[in-house]
Design a binder for these strands. Structure first.
Length: 814
RNA sequence: GCCGAAGUGGCGGAAUGGCAGACGCGAUGGUCUCAAAAACCAUUGAGGGCGACCUCAUGUGGGUUCGACUCCCACCUUCGGCACCA
């Protein structure tokens, strides 16, 4: 046995052995309790970067640990193979996106395998495979039949660089940039397909039973943006109903004017002849601004607007209130019209002051009266005044009272509004799932018959980024016949958002080749939902929200029974360059995992990535830091395999035994909570302890053997290759990865004799050595007798004596 | 503005009511060597003292507690999300 461990020989050797023996094969029918772990699948960009390692290897560690804990673990891998980079690379280099993608997959699978993950590659999925995407189409049709997929013409977000529409979630930040390419997003009026995620808005706000980071659930909650209030119908003097949404029906008496969005359908009808010219000009300007970007979150942005020459009647106060249009009211939220309550809403206040509109107080705080003048909007809740029959009620009670009154008088109703928009899924690009819909002049919109799926993506396509769907430009593909009447018809020429692919892939892994269903129900019933999901938090309101929606739709179709797709979610942080900046080619701070693996081996790279710091936090790479892990694994190797020259010093086998039990507990606890950095720190300490014990007569003892075996087993999830080699060295013929996680004895977690710090008034003033079993009285006696403590206590009054078992003693004196 | 996360040595970080700085990097000194590398040993928060030791120290200011990095209140800073959303 060589004294140095050579990863370049050993790692491939064991990977081949594992593959040959099929130790990671998925066994859906085993009797062991199941544990389904999924890490977000990679996009086949062509090269695995260190971020993939950072995301995936700790997930593998946890999965391996669960397996050693006795679970039947399934930890699959696949490729999110549709998407723009393939098409863009193809356009740039005149390649076939299919060939580009699939050759990348072949290469990246090799890289992924070099990580030493416990993946059963026979279960892999590739979303660009027709056997996968046919089920996207199948789901699309089911959604269509259930009213969850619909087509709508409206202003949509358009990325000029990607040359396609985007879902609202894919437009990021206040500058409204494309999630994928960072371009400024514009608007276009287009007829597009949507999935009705809003019909699950309320359910998506319910995170009960989900062990997900607060950060993600709060982002989703923000995104969905539920507001409770009422819809209230005002009537114009001419009698046209104008419905507004308000979260403050309690302030209805304070509504002294109304504002409609410039695009509001009633604007044209209500505008008076005298005001028509200025209204038209304002509307035109607003629409122009919409196209350019009606953005600017500038707080200082002055309010603009125009009176349309009409009045409405406030249904509560019966006051005549002017109707204005202004671009601060958005057509896309609520009803596109508001009742303006300038006294208690900052925007309405700003508008009223700009245009000299009346401001009325309808809420008071304790120190105010109904006549206290308003110097600024006072949005806080308080007591209602100047409001007829609801005077004197608290804002909260008044809300309820007004809603009940509105409902009784048929003037309005309780209403809830969401910020969440339906998911726009049409994309004007080639490399995606064709939308399986046919437009027949006679029969209308007809789905492709299910027995004709998959509707294959054609190969010979001129997919230049023209802004038109490449499939539309194909000479024949779009022309078909209506499945209903047999007449001439046309196919939808868009493809689906690739987030569709990742919305249900976790279910497909279980039966990737099922030709009759998206997944085999018997297996899915046993294995779903996913127990542990890992991946980046950048998908909080995209993939992670879409997946929850998709799952609920599947549940309502009777395909799955749980309410949520992924029970526990952990998000890793981002691994940064050595300069603490995001890794990028232009900064030249990119770390290449292949080079590291060649130099140090996969085990070292895995170990260091987890040792850097808390996994959820991420952090900067450190080229010197990895050397520490090289040393650690090397020491672990030597401490087990090398025979010390001398080992005759007096040692303590019982101490080693206790250290062994302690580390078993620590590593298990830490891996369970994804605290890999402290698990590894603990193992480093343990190796250092073994190094010392090795030079004593403890070496070669029963306790020594157990400690070496424990070290090897605890190392197995983290450094699977070296652990396997050590396990073999220790004389075992069966893989270390088929072993059971070692157990520990609670009684052996603390030493027989312990050192306790003794505090006087909370400051450590001495230390005593006592038996772990010593009772409180004995400990206090020992503390007071201590040569450093005794003089300090002498002549003082002992107020209190605190003994924290196994921790410390505190003596409070006066 | 609202919601969320975070702030600890030269650096990455540990400790979630009980000895602050585990573990690692870096640094300094040493052993081995012709020399170097590797490995090993020692020291390494700041200030003071020859020294056993003492004082200070976890963004800031208060508070609770025998005891606070940890809990509470107020604030500062950084990062992420939402935002003319009625």
């Amino acid at each position: 046995m060589a004294t140095r461990y050579d990863s370049s020989v050993t790692e491939p050797k064991w990977r081949e052995r594992w593959e040959r023996d099929g130790i990671y094969r998925f066994e859906p029918d085993s009797d062991k309790p199941k544990h389904y772990a999924v890490t977000m699948l990679p996009y086949p960009s062509g090269n695995l970067h260190i971020g993939h390692w950072y995301a995936m290897s700790p997930s593998d560690v946890h999965a391996r640990y669960m397996r050693m804990q006795g679970y039947n673990v399934f930890f699959p891998m696949g490729f999110d193979a549709f998407g723009l980079p393939a098409e863009n690379a193809a356009i740039k280099n005149n390649l076939d996106p299919r060939k580009w993608t699939y050759s990348n997959i072949e290469y990246m699978r090799g890289q992924l395998q070099s990580m030493g993950m416990m993946v059963d590659w026979q279960q892999q999925i590739i979303s660009a495979d027709p056997e996968y995407y046919r089920w996207n189409q199948w789901f699309f049709i089911q959604f269509f039949k259930r009213g969850l997929a619909y087509k709508k013409f409206s202003a949509v977000d358009w990325c000029p660089k990607c040359n396609t529409t985007l879902a609202r979630e894919q437009v990021v930040g206040d500058e409204r940039r494309c999630e994928r390419c960072d371009s400024l997003v514009t608007k276009r009026d287009l007829d597009q397909w949507y999935f009705k995620i809003t019909s699950y808005a309320d359910e998506l706000l319910d995170f009960s039973g989900l062990d997900w980071p607060e950060r993600i659930t709060s982002m989703q909650r923000n995104w969905i943006g539920r507001s409770e209030g009422a819809e209230i119908t005002f009537k114009s003097e001419a009698g046209d109903p104008i419905t507004v949404f308000s979260t403050r029906p309690d302030t209805l008496w304070g509504a002294s004017f109304m504002v409609l969005a410039p695009e509001h359908p009633l604007v044209a009808k209500l505008t008076s002849a005298e005001q028509k010219a200025s209204v038209d000009a304002y509307v035109a300007e607003a629409i122009r601004k919409t196209e350019v970007e009606r953005q600017s979150t500038d707080d200082e942005k002055p309010k603009t607007g125009v009176w349309i020459g009409a009045y409405a009647i406030n249904p509560a106060s019966q006051e005549r209130v002017p109707i204005w249009i202004a671009d601060y009211v958005l057509m896309t939220y609520g009803t596109g019209a508001i009742m303006a309550v300038p006294g208690h809403d900052e925007r309405d206040f700003a508008f009223a002051t700009t245009f000299g509109l009346p401001i009325k107080r309808v809420v008071v705080q304790a120190e105010q009266t109904a006549a206290t003048p308003l110097e600024a909007a006072e949005p806080a809740y308080g007591t209602v005044v100047n409001s007829g029959q609801i005077d004197g009620l608290s804002s909260t009670d008044a809300k309820e009272a007004v809603i009940k009154w509105l409902e009784a008088e048929q003037l309005g109703k309780r209403a809830i509004n969401y910020r969440l928009r339906d998911w726009l899924v049409s994309r004007q690009r080639y490399w995606g799932t064709p939308i399986p819909m046919i437009y027949c002049p006679t029969c209308g919109t007809v789905p492709v018959p299910e027995d004709q799926l998959p509707l294959l993506l054609p190969d010979e396509v001129d997919f230049k980024p023209t802004g038109e769907s490449p499939l539309k430009l194909h000479p024949t593909w779009r022309f078909t016949t209506c499945p209903n009447c047999g007449g001439e018809a046309e196919r939808d020429t868009d493809t689906m958002d690739t987030f569709v692919d990742s919305s249900w892939y976790q279910t497909r892994y279980l039966s990737p080749h099922d030709a009759n269903a998206p997944f085999t129900k018997a297996i899915a019933d046993k294995w779903l939902p996913v127990d542990q999901y890992t991946g980046g938090r950048e998908h909080a309101v995209m993939h992670l929200l879409y997946t929850r929606f998709w799952w609920k739709a599947m549940r309502d179709m009777g395909l799955v029974s749980a309410n949520e797709p992924m029970t526990r979610l952990i998000n890793q942080g981002v691994i940064l360059g050595e300069d603490s900046n995001k890794m990028s080619k232009s900064r030249g701070n990119v770390i290449d995992p292949d080079m590291l693996v060649a130099q140090y081996g996969a085990d070292t790279v895995r170990t260091f990535l987890m040792f850097i710091g808390p996994w959820e936090q991420g952090g900067p790479w450190n080229n010197r830091g990895i050397e520490g892990c090289v040393r650690f694994l090397d020491r672990a190797w030597r401490v087990v395999t090398d025979t010390p020259q001398r080992h005759d010093a007096a040692g303590n086998a019982s101490t080693l035994e206790r250290q062994t039990h302690r580390i078993i507990k620590k590593v298990g606890d830490d891996i369970q909570r994804f605290a890999f950095n402290t698990a590894i720190a603990g193992l480093m300490e343990f190796v250092n302890e073994l190094m010392k014990a090795r030079e004593t007569d403890v070496y070669g003892s029963e306790q020594w053997r157990k400690a070496s075996e424990a070290l090897t087993l605890l190392l197995a999830p983290i450094a699977p290759h070296i652990a396997e080699e050590l396990w073999e060295f220790l004389g075992h013929s069966e893989s270390v990865h088929l072993q059971v996680w070692p157990s520990y004895d609670e009684a052996l977690l603390i030493d027989e004799s312990i050192e306790l710090p003794v505090q006087i008034n909370g400051k450590v003033r001495g230390k005593i050595q006592v038996a772990a079993s010593a009772d409180e009285a004995t400990i206090i006696a020992a503390a007071l007798a201590d040569e450093k403590i005794a003089p300090l206590v002498e002549g003082k009054t002992i107020v209190k004596q605190i003994v924290v078992p196994n921790r410390l003693v505190n003596i409070v004196i006066k």
